[in-house]
Nucleic acid binder design. Sequence first.
DNA 1: CGTGCCGGGGG
DNA 2: CCCCCGGCACG
Length: 410
Amino acid sequence: METERPPAQGRACEHPPPRAAARDPIAPRAEARWQHAEGRVPAPPQGQLAGSGFAGLEFAVPQEPQAANLVTPGTCAGAAAGRRPPSAQIPVPAQRAPPGKARLDEVMAAAALTSLSTSPLCLGAPAAAFSPEPGLEPWKEGLARPPGSYSSSTNSGDWGWDLASDQSSPSTPSPPLPLETAHFLFGDPTLRKRKSSVRVMFQCLWKSCGKVLSTASGMQRHIRLVHLGRRQAEPEQSDGEEDFYYTELDVGVDVLTDGLSNLTPVSPTASVPPAFPHLELPELLNPPALPRLLQPLALALAPPPVLSSVAPPQVCHRDHAYQVGEATGVWEQVSGHCRDERGSGCSSVHLELRATEVQACAPALPSKLGTSLRKPRGDAKKCRKVYGMDHRDLWCTACRWKKACQRFLD
DNA sequence: CGTGCCGGGGG
DNA sequence: CCCCCGGCACG
């Protein structure tokens, strides 16, 4: 994973200046075509936003040209597309038309969904959970104190939370959730801070429950009381039945902090759970850099083996995920600070929104250690695909030279 | 067959 | 250097 941003990114931000008129024979031609096609009047390139320095966030949303335009104000608009009038119009390949509602606060939501898609949490967790607003969600309140469904007096000492209590979409059965995922995604500070501790948790497998407690006895009591309808008065007569309804969770907390970087791909056959009903991913955006990292994370955080009766076997259809992903945008930071590239003092951040495959199910990771000789073909959309053969002038230089694409890095 | 891009070649 | 393209491996 290369962290270094290869040079020559500057181009994207460069202003479509006189564009070395003598050079590049195709550009002027193509440009004219492009502009003509849209009935646009060639306008002089817009100057760099004065003093905006780092301010420029630029979004290029692949979508219908006429569709909603969203461009962050104060950008070097027009640069991405290059050669575009300063209007808010975004350069667009005009291939797919996702509703252009790309907001940054949705970015986190996407992250959540991306990773959740491999976990059962998505079934139970309502949209509210994805709200960027911390602390106000009901699930958190439930965290602080056990919800009403559960007589709080019984909670002697064990801590836990009931995620199912917040369920707003009862339509789907809700297998237990990998709490780590939840914690990570929801940013529970308590767990995030601890590193390298492995804690055993107990998770209720009862349909639509998913409660997690810290002690087995607490969990047994929970099951007895809540699900088996035993009386609290009854002594701890454990006939063992409860054991069927909860499972142990090995919670490697360090995964939360370190996991992002050093999670190793998990062999799909080994620890991936029986698979869960597929979640319909709403159209959301992924944050830059995150998605790729979250996927493995989600994979690794997949819930433990579950009673087979709880979660009916069901295959996660990759096709479907693919389709969903197609309509989904992914934020990808294309170039940080433009490297000082031969004097082009562009210092804006260029963000490109591209539609890409959100691998909702188990991502196809380099499963074999062999890392078979050849680098796997990057499945990202590249300039060619994004802009199309005509509009080649919009491609990044590398793409035009038939080199490795620099705009849509793998 | 389309695509990504390496390697090589021309100006 | 910049620019292009043959050709090949992927999918």
